[in-house]
Simulated scan of single mutants.
Amino acid sequence: MTSSYLPPTELLTDEKNLEATHQQLTLFIEEYVERSGTSGVVVGMSGGVDSTLTAALAVDALGPDRVFGLLLPCNKTAEVGSHDALTVAEALGIDYEEVHLQPLIRCFERLLVGDEGRDERIRALGNTTARLRMACLYYAANTRSKLVLGTGNRSERLLGYFTKYGDGGCDLLPLANLYKTEVRALARHMGLPCRIVEKPSTAGLWAEQTDEGELGATYDCIDAVLHYVVDRRYRAETVAEELDIPIETVWGVLNKHLETHHKRRLPATPGRESVE
Rank of each mutant, 00 (worst) to 15 (best):
R35A: 13
R35D: 10
S36P: 07
S36Q: 08
S36C: 03
S36T: 12
G37F: 03
G37S: 03
G37P: 00
G37D: 02
G37T: 01
T38F: 03
T38Y: 10
T38M: 08
T38C: 08
S39M: 10
S39G: 04
S39F: 10
S39R: 15
G40I: 09
V41I: 09
V41N: 01
V41S: 06
V42P: 01
V42Y: 00
V42E: 00
V42Q: 01
V42K: 00
V43K: 03
G44D: 12
G44V: 02
M45D: 12
S46Q: 00
S46T: 02
S46E: 02
S46R: 03
G47C: 07
G47Q: 11
G48N: 07
G48D: 06
G48C: 11
G48M: 08
G48W: 02
V49Q: 02
D50W: 13
D50N: 14
D50L: 09
S51L: 05
S51C: 09
S51Q: 09
T52Y: 02
T52A: 13
T52S: 14
L53F: 12
L53R: 03
L53K: 03
T54I: 04
T54D: 02
T54A: 04
T54N: 01
T54R: 01
A55V: 14
A55C: 13
A55N: 12
A56M: 04
A56E: 03
A56Y: 04
A56R: 09
L57Q: 05
A58Y: 10
A58P: 06
A58I: 06
A58H: 09
A58L: 07
V59W: 06
V59T: 07
V59S: 10
D60H: 09
D60E: 15
D60C: 08
A61E: 11
A61R: 04
A61W: 08
A61V: 10
L62W: 08
G63C: 11
G63R: 11
G63V: 11
G63A: 13
G63N: 07
P64N: 14
P64Y: 12
D65R: 15
D65H: 15
D65L: 14
R66M: 11
R66K: 15
V67R: 08
V67T: 14
V67M: 10
F68Y: 15
F68A: 02
F68N: 01
F68P: 05
F68C: 06
F68T: 11
G69N: 10
G69I: 13
G69Q: 08
G69H: 05
G69L: 05
L70R: 08
L70D: 02
L70M: 15
L71M: 15
L71R: 09
L71H: 08
L72I: 15
L72N: 05
P73W: 07
P73D: 06
P73L: 11
C74D: 07
K76R: 07
T77C: 02
A78H: 00
A78R: 00
A78C: 01
A78F: 01
E79D: 13
E79H: 10
E79I: 08
E79G: 00
E79M: 09
E79A: 06
V80L: 04
V80F: 00
V80P: 00
